[in-house]
Amino acid sequence: MSQYRLLVNQELLLYLRELERAAATQPGSLRARELRALRAGLRAIANGEEADFEGKRLRFATHDLSDCAEIKLPVIPETRGSQELGASHRLIYREFQPEDGGLPYREAICFEHRKNDRPFEVAAKRLGREASVRRNTLKSYGASSDIAPIRQALPQDLRIALAAASNVAPASGAVRTERPRSERPRVGLPRDNNPSREL
């Protein structure tokens, strides 16, 4: 079983915190079930267990999400007539090559009910993907399986956010100035500019 460092998109992280607050006051609610499913999904993608959740790599459809994959998570039992419709929610994620020799990264993009292709619309919006526009080909490092996302180079925005989170300035654009230790500015990004957080 492969292991991955988990990154969570800032908007998804805010939703996770919202679910935690709601579940604390209403343990049997829909929000509590969503929280359990989302946590299970995050553990699954961090532990390389996507096959256990009907994982599959995505493709170019309305939006180009060919660098992403999904896993299916049951929250709400749904049927059409006497036929069960399967897992109600989707967790969409992508994968990146490490630059530090550590474990590869997986970034959770969104967790949504499957109705009206909402997971794909939300993922495309969060990734800034326009409808009917194919992405430029990025350097690929292959994939860990045929259902996992194609691993790609760590994008600049995540590289900067990870550097800021570890309180280390990114090497590019660094300026050398000597100041007394008490006057050195703290390196980091405002929370609102951090596209993903590592868990």
Rank of each mutant, 00 (worst) to 15 (best):
L65N: 03
G101C: 08
T177P: 00
L189H: 04
S82K: 14
L65H: 01
R106K: 14
R135M: 01
L85W: 00
G86D: 10
E70T: 13
V8P: 09
G188L: 14
R59G: 06
L7C: 03
G48R: 12
C110E: 05
Q152S: 12
K72I: 03
A123N: 06
D64R: 02
M1S: 09
L127N: 09
E78A: 09
N116H: 10
A164E: 05
R184E: 06
L38C: 13
R43H: 10
A69I: 01
R135D: 00
I147W: 02
R5F: 07
R31G: 08
A46M: 10
E50V: 12
R135S: 02
R186S: 14
D192P: 02
R5Y: 04
S29Y: 06
T62Y: 08
Q97A: 14
C110L: 08
R118A: 12
T79S: 14
A164V: 11
R80A: 02
Q97F: 02
L103G: 02
I71M: 09
T62Q: 15
I147S: 10
A40F: 08
E183T: 01
S166D: 02
G128K: 05
A24C: 07
A44K: 14
L85D: 07
I92D: 09
D146P: 12
S172L: 11
N9C: 05
R39N: 15
E50H: 11
L12H: 00
S66D: 00
E107K: 08
D64E: 03
T62H: 12
V8I: 13
Q97H: 11
F53Y: 15
Y141P: 12
N194W: 12
